[in-house]
Computed example of a mutant assay.
Amino acid sequence: MLDAGPALLSRDPDAGVRKVVAAHPNLPGPDLVRLLDDPSESVAATVAASPALPAAEMERILTLAGV
């Protein structure tokens, strides 16, 4: 599925495709960060749980959550 390139698939109109791509460990950091603002809550949640998410973004999420 990722033969088309993770960055391209991360912009797919189907939220299910974006969610699968968001969980891919080789998705570039800028695409992960962009998907945090995805209109699909499940896509954004998948990205937020990714260990590949840049540390600064993890800290931002924790700050917004009041942790």
Results as ranks from 00 to 15, higher is better:
residue 46 T to C: 14
residue 64 L to D: 04
residue 55 A to W: 12
residue 64 L to W: 00
residue 50 S to F: 04
residue 8 L to C: 04
residue 28 P to H: 00
residue 58 M to G: 14
residue 54 P to S: 00
residue 30 P to R: 00
residue 54 P to H: 00
residue 27 L to V: 14
residue 40 S to C: 11
residue 33 V to G: 09
residue 3 D to R: 15
residue 1 M to D: 13
residue 19 K to M: 09
residue 35 L to Y: 06
residue 14 D to R: 07
residue 7 A to F: 00
residue 58 M to P: 08
residue 50 S to C: 09
residue 42 S to A: 13
residue 29 G to R: 04
residue 10 S to D: 06
residue 20 V to I: 12
residue 4 A to L: 14
residue 4 A to P: 14
residue 55 A to E: 14
residue 51 P to C: 03
residue 64 L to A: 10
residue 1 M to I: 13
residue 33 V to D: 03
residue 33 V to E: 07
residue 11 R to Y: 02
residue 64 L to T: 08
residue 33 V to C: 06
residue 59 E to D: 11
residue 59 E to F: 12
residue 49 A to L: 11
residue 15 A to M: 06
residue 16 G to Y: 01
residue 34 R to E: 13
residue 61 I to E: 01
residue 30 P to G: 04
residue 2 L to E: 10
residue 42 S to W: 04
residue 35 L to I: 15
residue 9 L to D: 12
residue 9 L to V: 13
residue 29 G to I: 07
residue 8 L to G: 04
residue 14 D to L: 05
residue 6 P to T: 08
residue 38 D to S: 07
residue 34 R to V: 15
residue 28 P to W: 00
residue 32 L to R: 14
residue 33 V to Y: 02
residue 29 G to M: 00
residue 55 A to T: 15
residue 12 D to I: 05
residue 12 D to A: 06
residue 36 L to Y: 01
residue 60 R to T: 10
residue 47 V to R: 05
residue 18 R to F: 01
residue 14 D to P: 11
residue 4 A to W: 08
residue 53 L to V: 11
residue 34 R to Y: 06
residue 2 L to V: 12
residue 55 A to R: 15
residue 58 M to A: 10
residue 37 D to R: 09
residue 5 G to R: 12
residue 31 D to P: 12
residue 27 L to D: 05
residue 35 L to T: 15
residue 51 P to N: 06
residue 17 V to A: 04
residue 57 E to H: 14
residue 11 R to H: 11
residue 64 L to M: 03
residue 66 G to P: 06
residue 17 V to K: 02
residue 17 V to C: 08
residue 17 V to N: 03
residue 20 V to A: 09
residue 48 A to S: 13
residue 16 G to H: 02
residue 30 P to Q: 01
residue 47 V to S: 08
residue 57 E to P: 13
residue 8 L to F: 05
residue 32 L to N: 08
residue 65 A to L: 08
residue 20 V to C: 04
residue 60 R to A: 05
residue 58 M to Y: 03
residue 46 T to R: 13
residue 62 L to W: 05
residue 66 G to V: 05
residue 40 S to K: 03
residue 59 E to L: 15
residue 28 P to G: 01
